[in-house]
Amino acid sequence: MKMIRAIVRPERVSVILEELLDAGYPAVTKTDVVGRGKQRGIKVGNVRYDELQKEMLLLVVEDEEKDEVVKLISKNAKTGEGVYGDGKIFVTPVEDVYTISSGVQEL
């Protein structure tokens, strides 16, 4: 299994979540995050904003579903503005999964 962490612009989240649901991936965790990427924040006039609002989506999928989910998120997170700041997707292996209520290991 793979854990996919996608850090995206807040205004793109509803579209991404709808597309994930339509594609059969209803289980997603969403959290507000702040940070900066290669662009080191943004500068508006004389003011520099070091920490930009983003959303992080987390989901766990089967290995063979990873590419489909990454493509789906990438397609729907991209603003088309041709600038930095659309986000990043990180994929990591998942060793174990446990359901807290039952204590059952799912892998």
Rank of each mutant, 00 (worst) to 15 (best):
L57C: 05
V13C: 08
L58S: 10
V69H: 09
V44E: 14
E19D: 09
E65V: 02
L57M: 07
E19H: 09
D67H: 08
K78M: 09
R36W: 11
V8K: 01
V15E: 14
E65S: 12
Y49L: 13
E64D: 15
E64Q: 12
K2M: 08
V13I: 10
K75C: 00
G35R: 04
L58P: 00
E51M: 11
K75L: 11
E65T: 04
E11H: 13
L20F: 06
T31Y: 10
N76P: 02
R36T: 14
D22K: 15
V70S: 03
E11S: 10
D50S: 14
G80D: 01
G82M: 02
T31I: 13
E68A: 15
I42F: 06
L58V: 05
V61S: 03
I42N: 05
A23V: 07
L17R: 11
A77Y: 02
G24D: 02
V47C: 10
Y84T: 10
K71F: 00
V33D: 05
E62A: 14
E62G: 08
G87H: 08
E51Y: 12
V34Q: 13
V70F: 06
E62S: 14
R40C: 07
E81C: 00
L17I: 11
I16H: 03
M1E: 06
E18C: 05
M1G: 07
R36F: 14
T31A: 15
E64K: 13
L72D: 11
E51P: 01
K43T: 15
K54F: 06
D22C: 09
V28I: 13
V70G: 03
K66S: 15
A27V: 12
G41F: 04
M1F: 06
L21H: 12
V13D: 01
S14L: 08
I7R: 02
I4R: 01
L21W: 08
I16L: 03
D86K: 05
M56H: 02
T79H: 03
V28H: 04
G41Q: 00
R12G: 06
A6D: 11
S74E: 11
A27I: 12
G41M: 01
M56W: 00
V13A: 13
M56I: 07
S14P: 05
R40K: 14
V28R: 03
V83I: 11
Q39L: 10
R9M: 09
M3K: 15
G37F: 07
D50M: 09
K71I: 00
K2H: 15
N76C: 01
V70A: 01
E81N: 05
I16V: 12
K54S: 08
E65R: 09
D63M: 02
E65D: 15
N76Y: 12
E19G: 06
I73F: 05
G80Q: 00
E64S: 12
D63F: 00
G45L: 07
D86G: 11
A23G: 04
P26K: 03
R12D: 09
E11G: 08
D32V: 15
K30Q: 13
I42L: 11
G37L: 04
S14C: 07
T79G: 06
Y25W: 04
L17Y: 03
I7L: 07
L20G: 04
R36V: 07
P26G: 07
